[in-house]
């Protein structure tokens, strides 16, 4: 049986290539049909903020790639509610992402064979 991998994405979307590069690992895993999960934690929850204007920063929009995750076979999507509320995150994109409290995240990490935090 394939080993499962959890990616914990902790970078805000426009602070550098970190968020995109974390997502690329997830998409590659989905392409290989591997059991892969994605957790948005700390500043990473800002990737879910609705109404981002990437063009104003001369960046490529990341949210379209996020929306495509379920199509790539990545359905285990989570975000930390504590991180979201600490940052006043209101409207979110990616309805598929399940909210988890900090205490539940411990159990989530436990469920996966391997973890990468980026």
């Amino acid at each position: 049986m394939a080993k499962s991998l959890l990616i914990i994405s902790r970078q805000s979307p426009w602070s550098g290539p970190g968020a995109r590069e974390a997502l690329d690992i997830v998409l590659a895993g989905g392409a290989f049909d591997l059991p892969i999960g994605l957790l948005f934690l700390d500043d990473g929850v800002l990737q879910l903020a609705a109404g981002q204007n990437a063009r104003a920063l001369q960046q490529k929009d990341l949210s379209a790639n996020l929306q495509a995750l379920p199509m790539f076979g990545v359905e285990e999507l989570f975000y930390c509610v504590d991180s979201a509320s600490a940052r006043g995150l209101g409207d979110r994109s990616l309805d598929e992402a399940q909210p988890l409290a900090a205490a539940q995240i411990t159990a989530l990490i436990d469920r996966y064979d391997q973890v990468i935090t980026l």
């Binding site: 991998l5 902790r10 970190g18 690992i25 290989f32 391997q114 990468i116 980026l118």
Partner: peptide
């Protein structure tokens, strides 16, 4: 090489050890 090599290594290894992540 591509990210597939990372996934391949993860599958092959008992443990993945990461350095310098966020």
């Amino acid at each position: 090489s591509g990210l597939g090599q990372l996934h391949d290594a993860v599958q092959d290894a008992d443990r993945l050890i990461c350095f310098g992540g966020a």
